[in-house]
């Protein structure tokens, strides 16, 4: 499965990665909690769902499991 192709007739598909980010076809604009708007024109954008990213709202792989 791939993040959906953005055509006029087809809905934009968003893929949720288990224990990971949300993949959205770019470009995207994200309005943050405080009203700031950030943009990314990458072909696919990984949006952080774990709230641990140092690059929030983008995923920076901080969601990964840590070994003991």
């Amino acid at each position: 499965m791939r993040p959906g192709h953005c055509g006029r007739d087809s809905p934009r598909r968003i893929r949720l990665v288990k224990n990971g980010p949300m993949l959205v076809e770019g470009p995207v604009e994200v309005e943050l909690e405080d009203g700031t708007v950030v943009t990314s024109d990458r072909f696919v954008v990984a949006i952080c769902r774990c709230h641990r990213s140092g690059r929030y709202p983008w995923c920076d792989t901080s969601h990964r499991r840590r070994s003991g």
Binding site: G20, A46, R55, D60
Partner: peptide, 16 residues
């Protein structure tokens, strides 16, 4: 910095 953002996406696309 670009490689933090880009490769967080690339790894998903490359794997899946």
């Amino acid at each position: 910095l670009e490689h933090v953002d880009a490769d967080a996406v690339h790894e998903q696309v490359m794997r899946h």
